[in-house]
Amino acid sequence: MISKKELEKCARSLMLNIDEKEYEMLIKELIVILKEIESFEKIDGLIDVEPMTFPFVTYKNELREDCATDSLDINDVLKNTNQSYLDQIKLPKVVE
């Protein structure tokens, strides 16, 4: 059984708040999905299957030369923040 407490923990770690009504709907929707996958248990040897994470591997790891390249222009970086100071994005104090 899904508890609201568990979901509150999930919401908190995602830095999200939702109201009581939304929690109720969320639990209902989750129950539907969990019900749908009850048949996982009937699949023989499922545990021995390697979980699939990508359709296929399209890349190989390659080391590139460690060269300095242009980074974003500081004016471009600051374009989308509405709180900046000099050439930096302004934040509330993090370290006491």
Partner: peptide, 14 residues
Amino acid sequence: QLFFNTGRVRRLLV
């Protein structure tokens, strides 16, 4: 139970 098993079923289908 949920995330990895789902990836396993994805592989079975594919």
